[in-house]
Design a protein around this nucleic acid. Sequence first.
DNA 1: CTTTCAGCCTGACGGC
DNA 2: TGCCGTCAGGCTGAAA
Length: 268
Amino acid sequence: MPELPEVETTLRGIEPWIADQIITQLNVRQGSLRWPVTPGLAKIAQGQKVCALRRRAKYLIMQLERGSMLIHLGMSGSLRLVEPETEWRKHDHIEMQMSNGSVLRYHDPRRFGCWLWSGAEHSQLARLGPEPLSADFDGHRLYQLSRKRKMAVKPFIMDNNTVVGVGNIYASEALYRSGIRPDRAAGNIAEKRYMVLSGHIKEVLKAAIEQGGTTLRDFVNGNGEPGYFQQTLAVYGRGGQPCRHCGTLLKEIKLGQRSSVFCPNCQR
DNA sequence: CTTTCAGCCTGACGGC
DNA sequence: TGCCGTCAGGCTGAAA
């Protein structure tokens, strides 16, 4: 499940191998993703240089000479560098060959990701909130945006309009660290608590990115799956198990269609 | 305006 | 053993 840290880790892993290189060939084997892969993408991309690779929210933006490719990993997607002529695995959908011999493979069993070309601005990026690790995101923003909102705080912080890149895992963990119940109404939380929460969102994402860095070699070699976060998760996926702080059994509820685990004693 | 929810897709898992 | 239902997840756009 690629969340922001995984996307950032992917970016850092592949960037040195493809930046400033020319796309010699692009193969689309399966173009039926979240949105259909832009028709003619292979022909459009071929011969263009990768001028830059950057991340916005959970999107990767591959800046080429005449426009950009917007890439999303959905929830099961991955980008890996593989040896040339590597046998195609099931669910390998796209391959990009570079002038330095690097080969990038896109693998995505559930096909929730996307590869979209645009010569101008991608509409998907138009109304995104601030990056969680930027100075534009802080407790003041959470407080201001949440006034009079009845929505539970967890879906509120997972809303891309509030702040981007906070998925179910890290929202759950940040709320636990902040001592805030995920089902508390967003509009009913004091500014001070939002200051604490915004700090923990940043911390948890930073920590995950740092740990993701240890799996960089996996991306280069094309082996293995990143599984770095599992050991450090306090609540996500631990419903019914004891809280590591107080021993109270963690409670699991549904919020906005998503499972949410919290400690009824530590979080209020 | 805010909030909810279906739909996209496959693999893993539990029950029978 | 295999079949079936359920779940997981990000994101959009339509409905309430």
